[in-house]
Simulated assay, not measured.
Amino acid sequence: MLNIADTLHRWCREDRPFALATVVGVTGSAPLPVGTSVAVDEDGTAVGSISGGCVEGEVYELCREVLRDRGAPQRAWFGYSDDDAFAVGLTCGGELDVLIQRVDPRDHPHLADALDGRPAAVAHVVDGPEEWIGATLSVLGDRWIADRTLGDGPTGRAMADRATAQLRTGRTALVPLGGDADTCPETLSVLVHVAATRPRMLIFGAVDFAAALARAGRFLGYRVTVCDARPVFATAERFPHADEVVVDWPRRYLAQTAVDTRTAVCVLTHDAKFDIPLLRLALDLPVGYIGAMGSRRTHAERLLRLREVGVTQEQLARLRSPIGLDLGARTPEETAISITAEIIAHASRASGLPLVRVSGPIHRGSGAVLETAGHGTGMVSETC
């Protein structure tokens, strides 16, 4: 749903009914994760993609049918058939479980606010009693609003609690809910779409490499900050792709700024008077990635200095130094790709090896709730 949030927000504001097809299950190799949607309005306008092109035509027709007939939500399964190479299916060999439903914004009045770009969570019932399927609930700040189907009863409150918890993590997930007579009698499968604030990339050192990294980080969806204690170098003109440029001592700035497990800290100064206090603090914070630029000699000296100021071996194991993957990068732009590639691999717990040298599915998940930066999936064995 959130992959087409801008359009859905406009359609909801215009009270324009539409059909929504949402991926609610993925098995094996499939191009897009749980929570990805296609929508079709009454004029036949379509937005979004759920398969990268493999099954879009069939999904479009199902959406038109549900919208025209005003019927109950439908489920559709798409897989790969060796028996009929021309059948509608996924050429990558995976399987998709798709929920198609008609959405009248007047029946879901909270959706417009939930899709307006602010941090929010939308809990979407995708499995359970027939009368509950397709019901939605939105968490907006410290309040939640539900469809009439859910109301403010125990099921709605239980869904709101789970959606609130997912909003705090900043991750979309498919979660089981219910089976408890006191809190939620119905047994449901709920897809919680999370529109979280952008993850942060903190770049320390106003150097040419920082300018290229700021551009790459912003392209990947990070809120980028460049920080340097030297006002002559730390200027907005030098870093047009950064969301903010801060003139401050790196350690002091990091100590007073908000971070979380999605935050990437990139230290590009390779100057001990900045690096050591900064890294000593960063290695004690719950950030997702910490990398430092420098030669192998600089790295060895840095480790020695960090040990001298009390940094433990366990903490040092979190430090990615020299920063980046071995791509043979030389220019600032190539180096930015090297660094961001390592950040992606680290967040995904991937090897960083060429795919030709790796067996198994291209994208990997887990049997429980799978967490990713931005939009994630859950209760999925594997995604391609």
Rank of each mutant, 00 (worst) to 15 (best):
D6P: 01
A19Y: 01
V24R: 04
P31R: 00
L32I: 04
T36E: 12
S37N: 08
G44I: 01
E58I: 01
C63K: 01
E65R: 12
R70C: 00
P73V: 05
W77F: 11
F86T: 12
G89K: 00
G93H: 02
G94Y: 01
L99F: 09
L99M: 13
D104T: 01
R106A: 11
R106M: 00
L111F: 08
L111C: 13
S138Q: 01
L140D: 03
D142I: 01
R157K: 15
G170W: 06
P176D: 14
D182C: 11
P185S: 12
L191Q: 10
L202F: 06
R215Q: 15
R218N: 15
R223P: 00
V226I: 14
A236P: 02
D243Y: 00
V246R: 10
Y253K: 02
F274Y: 15
P277C: 10
P277E: 12
R280H: 10
E314D: 10
R318P: 03
R320L: 01
P322V: 08
P322A: 10
L327Y: 08
T335H: 08
I339P: 03
I344E: 05
S348D: 13
R349E: 15
L353G: 04
V356C: 07
S359H: 09
G360Q: 02
G360V: 05
P361N: 05
L370E: 15
E382G: 04
C384H: 00
